[in-house]
Amino acid sequence: MSPSDLLIIPFDDWVNTLVRDWLVPNFRPFFRALQVPITLVLNGLDDFLAFVPMLVVTAVLALLAWKYAGRGMAIFTVIGLFFIDMIGLWPETMTTLSMIITSVIFCAVIGIPVGILAARSDLMWKIVRPILDIMQTIPSFVYLVPIVMLFGVGMAPGIIATIIFALPPIIRLTNLGIRNVREDLIEAAESFGSTGWQMLVEVQFPLALRTIMAGLNQTLMLALSMVVIAALIGAGGLGLVVNTGLGRLDVGGATAGGVGIVILAIILDRITQGLGTQNQVQTVSLRETLVSLFRPRGKIATTEPGKAG
């Protein structure tokens, strides 16, 4: 005797009906349109990184690593990127890098405002929190299918899957950072007649920046870990190398792709971590250096909010 003897719920049929018969026919154009900005940013970045000579990209990343993570990390960056180039994976690495950067840009653009709204309204947080819990616990393979049905296959759907996977930490930590700003500072800002916007820009955001940067770092790491899975639905880059190796039982190929991902992950992790901790004591000249360094690389959208204060 079990409940299933009394009633069988055709849950899978319901979901099938919802997605196939309702979402796909009715909203496919809408979802297709969502890809447009992602494709735009991605293609721009991809073309740019493919165009810039390998040595220039290496130099810029090494310089950033040197500024934010010390000399050792700069040396590692140079050796690591040279190694990637020498094993013949440079173009794939740049594709992966542009995918990651695109994902992180969109995560920041969506996640920071949502996090701010969630921090300022308990109701909003009550709504957002379970959604984040679901996003973080649901296996990513589960949403690959509907993503393919709604968005098709290719780079942009891969990035959308990555965004879903990597978005929660930036929202959570933006919310946390803003909620943790000292109560008396909020009172002080309020007592001088700050508007909500002034409070945010002058006090809350700058003081939460460290935590937000930690969230951005987490998001970046999660995005990197999605590279292989996203390659399953047509995203290229190092993930594709790993998948191909897997399909052909080519140990060497899969390992090469994996090593590329690890090297890229270490470099990006150390740079963003350094950004988060050094931001508080940055001098103006350093800030300007940073901005001028970032400007030609188009990564300005992720780093610019950090300078708002």
Partner: peptide, 29 residues
């Protein structure tokens, strides 16, 4: 903004601002 200002027990200075910027906060607002 115009008539009433407040001084706090634990100072409540903005740690990311210089002394001058702190003093100028109300004016900036």
């Amino acid at each position: 903004r115009s008539k009433i200002a407040m001084v706090f027990q634990h100072f409540a200075l903005f740690p990311h601002r210089t002394i001058l910027e702190n003093a100028a906060y109300g004016l900036k607002i």
